[in-house]
Amino acid sequence: MHPQSLSRRQLFQLSGFAGMGLLLDSCGLNEYSTAVGNAIDPLNQRVEELLLKPQALAREYPISSIDPNALIINSFTDVPQIDPTTFKLIIDGAVNQPLQLSMNDIYKLPLQTMVIQHVCVEGWAAIVQWGGARLKDLIALAQPKNTARYVYFESGDGYYNSWDLPSAIHPQTLLAYQKNGQPLPVDNGAPLRLAAPIKLGYKQSKWVTRVTLMNQLPIKRGYWEDQGYEWFGGL
């Protein structure tokens, strides 16, 4: 073969080589996904914890940049029926003062609003305004024990999730009851939902009914996490 020329056959062989690499991906490697994820997760989680600046505020956007239709509603089951007039948020676990708060109690706490970018694990993002009480203020009312390191959230639809404490008491982590300046729609998690710029969407439970501080993570760490999603989910 003359080294200067490239026959059509060789070109096919070359492009075949390129395609083969991609094909190899699908041949049996998928079953190792969870093992690969489990192997790297301690490192990635450590990096995420190091990157998190507990007091630094995430970028907020002007109200004009809100795109109401960009926020897609993702729920894993039906919308639960919660009567906001009788609803009580439970805060318990590793606290000195377990609480049950009505919506009126929560409305009395300072209202914080923020226009932030909500990022979904699926790859889309939406600029959205949330308004509500800082989770930090709610947790402070319950007087957390200094052994508490995690916060576990239960939702009215059976969804469950858990967070690291520093992210939960970040100044932009809210239990929101407003969206884009209006009362929070039921589809978006009314009466109360988690809203924070520092976590992926699946960490932001809707219809939150119970906030439990914990010293250790339970075995069931979250609905999606138990199926393979990364636990920390930081942005």
Partner: peptide, 13 residues
């Protein structure tokens, strides 16, 4: 055949 991971979480892994 062009994707690796089986589903979103696997791809992210």
């Amino acid at each position: 055949f062009m994707t690796l991971g089986g589903w979103l979480a696997g791809g992210r892994d």
